[in-house]
Design a protein around this nucleic acid. Sequence first.
DNA 1: CTGACTTGCGCC
DNA 2: AAAGGGCGCAAGTCAG
Length: 553
Amino acid sequence: MDETARVDRIVLVRRGEGVEVREDDATVQLPAADLPRFVAEREAAGRAVRWVWDDTTRWYPGLLERGVRVARCTDLRLCHALLRRSPSADQDLLASDETPGWDALQPVTAVDPGLFPPADPADRLDPVAEHDRQRTVVAASAERWRLELLLAAESSGALVAAEMTHTGLPWRADVHDRLLTALLGPRPGGGQRPAVLERLAGEARAALGAPDLNPDSPADLLRALQAAGLPVSDTRSWTLEQLDHPAMPALLEYRKLSRLMTANGWSWLDAWVREGRFRSWFVPGGVVTGRWASNGGGALSMPTQVRPAAIADEGWRFVVADVAQLEPRVLAGMSGDTAMAEAARGADLYQGIVTAGVVGTRAEAKVGMLGALYGGTRGESGRMMPRLARRYPRAIGVVEEAARAGERGDVVRTLLGRGSPLPGAGWADRPVDLGEPPDDGGSRQDDGRQRRAWGRFTRNFVVQGTAAEWALCWLADLRNRLWALGEGPLDARPHLVFFLHDEVVVHAPESLVTEVGDAVRAAAAEAGRLLFGSFPVDFPLDVAVVRSWADAS
DNA sequence: CTGACTTGCGCC
DNA sequence: AAAGGGCGCAAGTCAG
């Protein structure tokens, strides 16, 4: 990944209404309006460029709006956040007067990407100095290549996220509306319940003998259930399912449809779908483990129920790809556990564990692995753990060690060096709290519970975080391959329209779907090589070419 | 009235 | 009886 010799670095700095372009010792001032042309020309010229800027969300949407795509960048905000927490980074080399400013910098979700936000706190920071500090930190690190890969992958993810927001996910509002109408009845006027919900609410009220029940109010519903003699202390669907009472079918159906309407109903369509595209903001690095978060429209929890409305354009297709059992495979790779990698050789890692004779059934293998990743110690999962630990000592050793470290209050790190946060204040060595009830054993028990809970977090952190790194490398490489498959602007070529932890959706011209499928697989293989070198762990993909997202999986 | 919290549930 | 990790969002609820 050391590309310093062959890639020019150009730092972009906002100066009032203009832009200062810093390249080695040369400095050029440009009016902001000239920046897109300047960037486009440098991208088209022979030498590769890495654009260095304070924050991708402050620069890239405006460039994309003007039809300019860049190959690579350094996102100083994201890289700063990574280095600040990385055990592989010397914090003294990163520290400066501006550290609090960089720490506090937030991404923007600009409505008008043509304008810089007024009074932006980013404008008080010096990107050139921060870039120098970050390069010094990386150069001095004993984990230099890993940090370089991590920073490059994180920055590339920022480009992907901006591009996905720019192009949007093809979404057919008419199909979505028909789906809602079929399930709920016609869209009602303001504040009204749709006919189907009104009918179900009436049935539930009658069956419970509670004529004024508001089924949307958990407290109200709980009172009504208890008044009807039902022994419940919450109103979760799972709890309701256990009850044998004539009101339950209507209540459960109400819940399901009400959820659909509030989360992805007509107002969702009004708010998030325009001109045939669902546009929300993806937030790289938005989760402590390195996973992305999202803003707006709940993009990361799109129910399968509404996915039929995601339909590719005429003459285009979706290529939908997901990795089977990403996290166990990542665990095999990061721990160098050849036995687990052997089980991961086929398409089904859990079946591989059965074939190896470790457990009797696929269900046992799955629940055991989930316990290893999440920290389940009781029941079925707990019973499987000793067998897994005996057969896969290196893999299980990695998560167990991470759990013990968390319980001690230590920081853990992903393969590429993302560091875990420290446990919250008051977690250990809690000051004497005079307000506590005088039950002295209870407080110690409570402390132990908190320690174990933090151990579960750090246990999962190392695997979830390294899996996120694999996915970033996958995305970054795929993005480059897709660009090379087409011509013209971003949305005329195969392009990413959705990403969710271990799944991507590519919108592609029908004539290119075979090449896109190959690219998705090749990128997955490349991600494995980048993270795990020649260690033989497979990342098999399920790839589907479909008109509608709902037709995959 | 606003803002913070709780409840419940969608995704991986 | 599912447990156990990470999120975002909407509606209800309650305090100030």
